[in-house]
C-alpha cells in the first residue's frame, strides 16, 4: 500500500457514508507517493446516509460497510467488487461513484479515478459537499499523473462549492 491511501479512504468514508469523522487535516497522495505539501485538504463534511432507492438502500449500506472493512486491509480489488455490486443496485448514487474513484486513486489508477469522480459529479443534485470532494479527488488524481496545472484548476473548481 502506498502512503496516504488511507487518508483518501477516510475521506471517502466521511464524505459518502454518513460516518461521522473528527475534523482533521487530510492529505492525499502526490505523484511521488509521499504526501505532498500544499495538498492538505480541509475535513470532509459529515453527510446524511446515501439516498439510494427505497428497496435497495439497506443492501447498499451493507455492501458499503463491508467495503469499508476490506478497505482497512487494503484489499482494493475486493473493495471495488463490492462497490460494483452496490452500483448495480443503485447506479445513480453519486456517493458510490465517489468511493470507487477513491479506490482507484488509492491504487494509483489516476485516469480512472478522475473519470469515476466525474461520473459522480454528473449525478449530483445539490450536494455541494460531495461536489467539492469529487473535485478534490480529481485534483489529487491529476497531481498523481503529474498534471500540476490541471490539479490547480480542479482545486479552484472545488473552492467554488464552498
Amino acid at each position: 500500500m502506498r502512503p496516504g491511501f488511507w487518508f483518501v479512504w477516510v475521506l471517502a468514508l466521511a464524505g459518502c457514508g454518513g460516518v461521522p469523522s473528527r475534523p482533521a487535516p487530510v492529505v492525499v497522495p502526490g505523484g511521488g507517493g509521499g504526501p505532498t505539501p500544499g495538498l492538505a485538504l480541509p475535513p470532509a463534511v459529515v453527510q446524511a446516509p446515501a439516498a439510494a432507492g427505497p428497496a435497495s438502500g439497506g443492501a447498499v449500506r451493507v455492501l458499503v460497510a463491508q467495503a469499508d472493512d476490506l478497505a482497512r486491509a487494503g484489499a482494493w480489488d475486493r473493495v471495488a467488487g463490492l462497490l460494483e455490486r452496490a452500483l448495480h443496485l443503485a447506479p445513480r448514487n453519486p456517493r458510490l461513484w465517489s468511493r470507487l474513484a477513491a479506490v482507484r486513486l488509492a491504487q494509483g489508477r489516476y485516469d480512472q479515478a478522475e473519470q469515476l469522480a466525474r461520473r459522480s459529479l454528473g449525478l449530483i443534485r445539490g450536494d455541494r459537499a460531495l461536489a467539492r470532494y469529487d473535485w478534490r479527488l480529481i485534483a489529487a488524481a491529476r497531481e498523481g499523473r503529474g498534471d500540476r496545472r490541471g490539479a490547480r484548476r480542479a482545486r479552484r473548481r472545488a473552492a467554488i462549492w464552498r
Binding site: 471495488a80 480512472q112 469515476l116 461520473r119 454528473g122
Partner: peptide
C-alpha cells in the same frame, strides 16, 4: 482476472442531461 468497471467521459454532463 477481473474485468473492472471502467468509464470514460466522451460528452459533457450538462449537454447529455
Amino acid at each position: 482476472r477481473r474485468y473492472p468497471l471502467e468509464v470514460k467521459q466522451v460528452v459533457d454532463g450538462p449537454v447529455m442531461t
